[in-house]
Design a protein around this nucleic acid. Sequence first.
DNA 1: CGATTCGATCGAATCGATTCGACTAAGCTA
DNA 2: TAGCTTAGTCGAATCGATTCGATCGAATCG
Lengths: 362, 362
Amino acid sequence: MQVTANDARATPGRPRPNLAAVAALAGVSPSTASLAFSGSGPVSAATRERVLAAAVRLDYAGPDPRAQSLRRGRSGIIGVVIEDRLSDAFRDPMNVAMLDGLADEAGSLGAGLLLLTENGVGAASIRNAPVDAVVLIGCSTGLADQVAIFRQRGIALVAIEAEPMADVLAIDLDNRAASAALAGHLGTLGHSRIAMVTLPLDATRSRGPLTDETVARSTGFTALERIRGVREVFPLAGGRVAAFSSVEEGYAAGLALLSDRGAADRPTAIIAQSDLLAVGVIRAAEHLGLAVPTDLSVVGFDGVKLDGITPHDLTTMVQPAVEKGRAAGRGVIALLRGEHPAPVDFRCTLHHGATTTMPQIQ
Amino acid sequence: MQVTANDARATPGRPRPNLAAVAALAGVSPSTASLAFSGSGPVSAATRERVLAAAVRLDYAGPDPRAQSLRRGRSGIIGVVIEDRLSDAFRDPMNVAMLDGLADEAGSLGAGLLLLTENGVGAASIRNAPVDAVVLIGCSTGLADQVAIFRQRGIALVAIEAEPMADVLAIDLDNRAASAALAGHLGTLGHSRIAMVTLPLDATRSRGPLTDETVARSTGFTALERIRGVREVFPLAGGRVAAFSSVEEGYAAGLALLSDRGAADRPTAIIAQSDLLAVGVIRAAEHLGLAVPTDLSVVGFDGVKLDGITPHDLTTMVQPAVEKGRAAGRGVIALLRGEHPAPVDFRCTLHHGATTTMPQIQ
DNA sequence: CGATTCGATCGAATCGATTCGACTAAGCTA
DNA sequence: TAGCTTAGTCGAATCGATTCGATCGAATCG
């Protein structure tokens, strides 16, 4: 029971005053004091002054948000469910951009974002979090359980790029069509030996060849959709699965796809599921003495800024990541208002860079 | 007023049952029902069964977290104050790593992380957030106001790398000493024309030359400490201020420091305040035809993984970023227990890479 | 001048759970 | 069998604010 630094009112400090105490000191009823603070009712200027003065005297910090949220039935908090470790999720600039857009809209509502990771004890936090709504980000198809919990609690749900679910507002991207368009672009140029470098297919983030089995077991909605899109054009396209959306992973996958193969055996084009992966693939190609796009065409996905990361002007599908987050935020707001917002579908736009050309004649 | 998909019980849905309703259906008092749920009291197995069955019948989702947090005086939420836009803050891998460590410890407590940005309307959310504790990350020295608010609310405070403040648990890094050591390393090698590329000096994130004036106006604690450390060795060292910790910014700063100068005029070594900046500087040097380290020595800070980003083995100060977050988390836990945890000071370790050598004789 | 309205204030109920103290009945000891 | 313990249950107070309806005095209107 040390008494050192007992000025630290961190936790035990003397009990904070409440509105009733302020009201008592000001000589008014708690209800009047409440009105004076919230400004939602007729209060004479004189009483308001008195209440505010009393609050200052008592060092009252304003209404307790916990009590407010109980009374109002709203906490002003939006949950964000992220399946990964934060460091993994935030490694992908797209996720960060989405979160940024979401934070923007949430901020306009005066709401905060509560990060909910589902790993470990986090399950408890999903069950107990005082959230008004939840946005599912970069989530696998295997979160039916979580969704059920939230639904039972009567919490509004929004999912970004997820398998359609009942009672969940979908914010989607045309991953499939966009990937098909990229593949089509390469097909038009004359490519036929195509390989993919995909985003992780499940939460284990295991790196390796893209096999029918790994695809069948996959829970990564976005990655799957993009694979499907490519296979609409090249039904047999294979490739590698990356563990992260990063330059290093792209580099490793690129080496795996390009090393130890003759020109006749090697893919003439690689479709990477993210720009970072694409940059890695390009580095691998160049490391192996292959010129891009002469010896190898490479396309990416996302449309992130690559200045300073690569000198190439990458051909890629530009997606409105921040806008996805914004749309999710607006969806939340509408749901909380009791409206029935319509699902949103975003479109990618093809950026015609300089990393694709016709395949060399062999 | 469409009635489509009216199954969406998102918001308006019929009112959720409460514990009292469950108790009534089970034929017990609310207090007993509460005991049955929390398990913190003697309840016969039969009664517990009955209560649980009633809960299932009513589709009761468990105690309302809002009411719990009012009653208990704890919300199970830890606020994280980030000064920047999220997309800016998360661009720096150090911040993400810290957050990850923090999330880890918070998760073990069953707590969630609430992102609080102070820009815009966010001020409202700082004032109203139902948090038990707050961690200040990457914050400027100009947040006395926020700290005052939290203190008034009796909220436990932890700051990572911030100017010491009363009643705020400090988690610090030896930025100054580590920077001095880096500078000393270069000094020992024989360098004397040193330039710095610093992290942003304030929230405006303006790019430009490092002048006495910008330093004097700066609010960036970490950046300032690192500048001070370097100037312990090279009192007159100047340089450039970057707008972000990124490769592109480093590249731009590198060009500004190295272009249009003769070998006798140019710095022989550059101290970058982050590894990403250092990589950018190296790219700029190489773009200008200067070899690293022969023509220019470069050091970084942080110790991030750079595989795939640069082939160089960067000489840098490795900091325990995840551990900083963990320590902050443990500090929060201790404070909430009413303990008086001691401040923590982390040390960087010098990684001797291959980007420094003796300056060329002119 | 009496009736009416309006502005300001207050009382009491409410949000949903937790918890302390009290009570009951059953099991035990002497 | 009287007296005592104890497991199980319940009532009521409490956390801190909001809000509806009622009240009271003063100002306005016919």
